[in-house]
Design a binder for these strands. Structure first.
Length: 462
DNA sequence: CCACGTACACCC
DNA sequence: AAACGGGTGTACGTGG
């Protein structure tokens, strides 16, 4: 029993009602406090980005000369880098940068696809391509984040997002006005934006996240012996998968990884590591993420291709169906049970009884049925993982409110498997310890749940 | 002029 | 048909 919520092996709307109401007070606190923004820093970032964009435009302008876009009426318009229609015509009809490589068309066959994923392989084919790619990436950052967020702060430079607990079918929260659950992290320039999210005077930010939480729930639900052993021993799941698939010795590979991390690796070790990482661990890791989402061999193939690993479809099929599920046969049996439930009842539920309806599962059209099964297939893990963090939020609310009476301690953000809190410097270490501790013990499974905390002056340091 | 759909990009 | 689950926001293009 966790704050009135219990495990359930049947649908139970009352149980999840208690859970969802339990985390509302913390959501209210998060909304009230808001996260502090370094507005001048964000504005300077906007300036830097504007300079990059203008350079891109100058070069593109010089390269296209007097080219103009020809619209559907046959008349000409000035070329716009931001228009997908214009890009399709310029790159694939005028310049023909694709040579004889076929380029996919948009679903309604209006034009060629011009996404970054399509353009990237032709980066070297024409000097205009990298300029266009960069223009689009920096404009995204400027329009969505650096220009917009400063307009939304209050008089204390704080940003009060709205968390919505009634949108996502799996019980996740969503965030809007602005969305603070999709702040960039992947690229160098994007991550700079996180430097603008700062702690108040004499305070620091504390972030804690649950490690591999959906995998942990999959291990618990499936009772697959190898998965259970991974989490009991505290192994890296993807490295374990890789070792079992390719017949490698786990301690040996763990030592190799450590020697590279410590920068004590010999040249021989470095090249062995490079191969291991890209051609053995990466495919296994990709499958590990993909299987819970019902990934197909084709999906795996295209995902690997964007990381420079070009595997034939047969190899992808074998990795998923033979090798991966050979390592985790219990996981496959669990997924098959879940799929059977969906096909039979057109619904499924998580470990707390949160139901997802999947009417598509009864469609006469096979592709609609399969789509329904894929959607539902991930529900038990994603929803259970949300239950995990929601129960932790409920437990932490009063602890933080009590602490906040003597020194500032304010929950700010929830990002699916992560909680970010702002606290006075005198108590940040305590908050870091408590937050991780409660995330770890909010529910007790047959394996330990791991969580860790970071402390920093800004979000980028977390 | 506004509302909406499409395609794309950002996150976990 | 689509091919990987869950979200939000923006620019562009179209149609009322």
């Amino acid at each position: 029993m966790y704050g009135g919520v219990e495990f359930r092996d049947y649908p139970d709307a009352d149980n999840i009602g208690i859970m969802d109401h339990g985390c509302l007070p913390m959501i209210a606190d998060m909304h009230k406090y808001g996260i502090r923004i370094d507005v001048p820093f964000l504005q300077s970032l906007s300036q830097r980005i504007a300079a990059i964009k203008e350079d891109n435009e100058t070069i593109v302008g010089a390269l296209i000369g007097n080219y103009q876009y020809r619209n559907s009426k046959g008349s000409y318009e000035p070329f716009k880098i931001g228009s997908r229609d214009h890009l399709s015509q310029l790159l694939f009809e005028e310049l023909k940068i694709q040579g004889d490589t076929p380029i996919p068309r948009t679903p309604k066959d209006k034009r060629y696809e011009v996404s970054e994923e399509i353009l990237e392989p032709f980066r070297e084919s024409h000097p205009i391509v990298p300029e266009i790619i960069e223009w689009h990436s920096v404009e995204k950052l400027r329009n969505t984040y650096t220009d917009t967020l400063p307009l939304m702060v209050d008089s204390d430079s704080r940003l009060h997002t709205s968390f919505n607990a009634t949108v996502a079918a799996t019980g996740r929260l969503s965030s809007s006005y602005p969305n603070l659950q999709n702040i960039p992290v992947r690229t160098k320039l994007g991550k700079e934006i996180r430097r603008a999210f700062i702690a108040g005077q004499n305070m620091a930010l504390v972030s804690s996240d649950l490690a591999q939480i959906e995998m942990v729930w999959a291990a618990h639900r499936s009772q697959d012996p190898t998965m259970l052993s991974v989490f009991r021993k505290g192994e890296d799941i993807h490295t374990r998968t890789t070792c079992n698939v390719f017949g490698l010795d786990y301690p040996e590979m763990a030592a190799l990884i450590k020697s590279v991390d410590d920068k004590t690796a010999t040249p021989d070790q470095l090249s062995r590591y490079a191969y291991f990482k890209q051609f053995q661990r990466l495919p296994c890791k990709t499958v590990g993420f993909g299987v819970l989402y019902g990934q197909t061999p084709e999906g795996l193939q295209s995902s690997l291709a964007s990381d420079g690993v070009h595997w034939p479809i047969e190899r992808c099929t074998k990795l998923i169906n033979v090798e991966f599920f050979g390592v985790y046969p219990g996981l496959l049996r669990m997924l098959e049970r879940d799929w059977a439930t969906v096909k039979r009842y057109a619904l499924c539920w998580d470990e707390f009884g949160r139901v997802r309806l999947v009417p598509e599962a009864k469609s006469v059209l096979r592709h609609i049925r399969e789509e329904g099964v894929r959607k539902a297939g991930n529900h038990p893990e994603q929803a259970s993982a949300q239950g995990n963090i929601k129960l932790a939020m409920a437990e932490l609310t009063d602890i933080y409110r009590r602490m906040n009476r003597s020194a500032p301690c304010r929950p700010l953000l929830q990002i699916h498997d992560q909680l970010i809190t702002e606290a006075h410097r005198s108590i940040t270490q305590d908050v870091a310890d408590i937050q991780a501790e409660i995330l770890r013990n909010a529910v007790i499974l047959s394996i330990p749940i791991n969580a860790s905390s970071d402390i920093g002056n800004c979000w980028a340091e977390l």
